[in-house]
Computed example of a mutant assay.
Amino acid sequence: MKKSLLLIVFLFALQFGYAKSDRVNLGLKAGFNTSKIKTDYEQFNDGSVNNFLVGAFARINMNRVYFQPELYFTSKGGELKDVEAGGTESFDLSSIDIPILLGAKIIEKKMYTVRIDAGPVMSFITKKSETDSDETFFDVDDLKDSYMGIQYGVGVDMWILSLDARIENSFGDFSDGSGKEKSKSFLFTLGIRF
């Protein structure tokens, strides 16, 4: 938590240093995501759950290209349905995510800008929970406490508003269990740039 606070203070100081040039923008963002965990076990169908995210970002503008680190708290999760034995198990994950994005402004007009961006994301799991079930076929404690992924998507800026739609995929297996699990999320956020 102290590191997160120091990062936010640093970003605000950076913003004040570049305020006149409009080279660096800071902002707050919030939105929702739909996420699921995909497994290699054939008897399971994966289902998605809807959750939220809230955080901050900094955009360092270099003409049509920009660099955008972000920091946000998000809730993720998933649902596994056992098609052979029946039963469904749901689980929730809370995490602090840090994407480091590189983007390009592909359309720049007076009233709006259309952007594309992509980059790595590091997720630090802060809480794991699953629904109470008589038959537990997935142990949420097997999920790693942190994992890497990639985000990519599109965005639109209008006035001080910043709207983004992205896909996030984890790299490799993010479980220590016997199966291979991957996380996939769709994120939709609305931000305010200062």
Rank of each mutant, 00 (worst) to 15 (best):
G77D: 00
M111Y: 14
K127V: 01
G78H: 05
D164P: 05
W159F: 13
G119K: 09
S133Q: 06
G77L: 02
D141W: 09
G149M: 02
F171I: 14
V154D: 02
L143H: 11
V121S: 03
G78P: 03
A85Q: 15
A85T: 12
P99G: 05
I100L: 14
Q68C: 00
V114W: 13
G86Y: 15
I106M: 12
E79S: 07
G155D: 01
G153N: 10
T126L: 03
L93V: 11
P69A: 04
N169L: 06
E84V: 15
S170K: 02
G87C: 08
D134R: 08
I100N: 04
A118R: 04
S129R: 00
F171H: 09
E130W: 04
Q68E: 04
P99D: 04
A104L: 11
S133N: 13
S95G: 06
R166G: 01
I98E: 10
Y72H: 04
L161M: 15
G103P: 11
D142H: 11
E168V: 06
S129G: 08
A118V: 15
D142E: 14
E70I: 05
S170V: 00
G153S: 11
K105F: 07
F67M: 00
I100P: 03
K110C: 00
E89N: 08
I125S: 03
D132H: 06
L163G: 12
L102W: 11
Y147I: 07
S123I: 04
D164A: 04
G86P: 02
L161K: 04
N169R: 15
G172K: 11
G155W: 07
F137V: 05
F171N: 08
S170L: 04
D164E: 14
M158T: 12
L71K: 03
V154H: 02
L101F: 08
L143G: 10
D164T: 10
D117M: 09
Y66N: 01
I160N: 12
S123R: 02
Q151A: 10
E130P: 02
P69M: 09
F171R: 08
D132F: 05
G86Q: 13
K110R: 08
E135Q: 13
R115E: 14
S94Q: 13
P99R: 05
E108V: 14
K110W: 11
Q68N: 10
W159I: 15
P120D: 07
W159D: 11
V121C: 03
S95E: 12
K105D: 13
G103K: 03
D97H: 07
Y112P: 00
G103L: 04
Y112Q: 11
K128S: 07
F138W: 01
D157F: 10
V65Q: 06
Q68H: 05
K144E: 13
T126P: 07
D157C: 06
L143C: 05
N169T: 14
I107W: 08
V154S: 05
I107M: 12
T126G: 00
I106L: 13
I96N: 05
V154P: 04
S95Q: 00
S75P: 01
D134N: 13
I150N: 06
M148A: 14
V83N: 12
Y112N: 00
A165R: 03
D134L: 13
Y72E: 00
G78F: 01
V83P: 00
K144H: 10
G86I: 06
S170M: 09
